[in-house]
Amino acid sequence: MKQLALFVATSFALGASAFNIPVIPLNWTTQYACAVDVPSRVLANVVTTQYTDNTPGSCVQRCDAAGYTWAGVEYSNECHCGTGLVGTPASAPVSDCNMACTGDPNLSCGGSWRIQIYKSPDLGPGSWTLRGCYLDTAASPAFGSPLVHHTFDTNLDLITQCVDYCGHLGYPWSGVENATDCQCSFGLTPGAQLRPQSECNSLCPLPPGEGNEYCGGFQRLEVYQFQNHT
């Protein structure tokens, strides 16, 4: 019996190690490669859904789209979406997460009361402060790299759209330019040139009845910085 038990344990370990490393989208990160779940659940305010195409990546995308900042896969077909952790989960050996995903047999999706946990880069509660109007050209960029550019379907309330977008991606610096371009970064370039605020004179609309707002200018980036409230 000891030999049989050893063989089973070894098989599980080999099976777990044979799984491919999943690609986690949207800048989410792995918080627990394998953790112990409990009947009351380790994710706060959790919503659990079973999917026939479940993978760590698809679960993260579904949770992100629903506005959750934590995700986990368990028991092959379960996708867990939550708002945080309930305490500190107990780590489990990676070999315990030995069940193949229903959406890809080459990936693991937890096990029986074993969950793989992922976290959004979302900055969480906080506020954005205007830091000024900066020159932004190819020769003198305002933001350093890595830099994300994004254009929305509409520039209605562009500043709010942009800071929310950057904050969800985990970037603490945000800027709008020429009433169209949203930029996200981790900070200003060394020597970034501050310009008079009057040069950020491109207008973009606010909701009906609220008028307009200034959203940068031509080669002028109106810059905001995130401040955490915690």
Rank of each mutant, 00 (worst) to 15 (best):
V47Y: 10
L203K: 01
F7D: 10
T102E: 08
L188P: 05
S112A: 10
W113G: 00
G132A: 05
S76N: 10
T151Q: 15
N212R: 11
P172V: 14
C204I: 04
M1F: 15
S58C: 01
D122F: 01
T88R: 13
P141K: 09
I115N: 05
A13V: 14
C184Q: 07
V223D: 10
L85V: 05
G191C: 07
L107M: 06
E213S: 15
L85N: 06
T29P: 02
S95Q: 12
C109V: 05
L6I: 02
L135F: 00
I21H: 13
T137S: 14
Y51R: 03
A18V: 04
P39E: 01
F19Y: 15
S76Q: 15
A33S: 02
V47K: 14
G57F: 03
K119M: 03
A142F: 07
N228V: 07
Q161C: 05
S202Q: 14
D37G: 02
N212A: 13
G87A: 10
C109R: 01
G111K: 09
Q197I: 02
A142K: 00
R62T: 14
G87D: 09
V38F: 14
L85G: 03
S11M: 05
S11E: 00
G132T: 10
P39D: 01
P208N: 11
P22I: 04
H80S: 04
R131N: 14
C81K: 02
P93G: 09
G170Y: 08
T137C: 10
T69W: 09
S108H: 13
S174K: 08
A179R: 02
N155S: 15
C63S: 08
Y224S: 08
Y51H: 09
G175W: 05
P205M: 10
D122A: 07
L43P: 01
D64E: 06
Q225F: 11
L130C: 11
L206M: 04
Q227T: 14
S17E: 12
G187K: 09
V60R: 03
N45W: 06
T52R: 15
G67A: 03
D64V: 00
Q219D: 11
S91P: 07
L206E: 05
T180E: 15
I21A: 12
E213M: 15
E74R: 07
L123F: 08
T180Q: 14
V60I: 04
L130P: 00
Y171N: 10
T154A: 06
T52Y: 14
P125E: 08
Q183K: 15
T102D: 11
L203N: 07
G72K: 04
C162D: 10
L107D: 01
V36S: 06
S58D: 03
R41I: 00
V223I: 15
N77P: 00
L158M: 12
A90M: 07
G67D: 06
A44T: 13
K2S: 14
S76Y: 12
Y171M: 09
F152C: 06
T88V: 12
T49M: 06
V60N: 01
S95Y: 12
E210I: 15
C79G: 04
T151W: 13
Y32W: 00
T102S: 13
V46N: 07
G187D: 08
G15W: 12
M1T: 13
P172W: 13
W173E: 01
C166P: 06
A100N: 08
W70I: 02
H80I: 00
T230N: 13
E210M: 15
N201V: 00
W128L: 05
E222H: 14
T55R: 06
N106A: 03
R195C: 04
W173P: 01
V148A: 02
W70P: 00
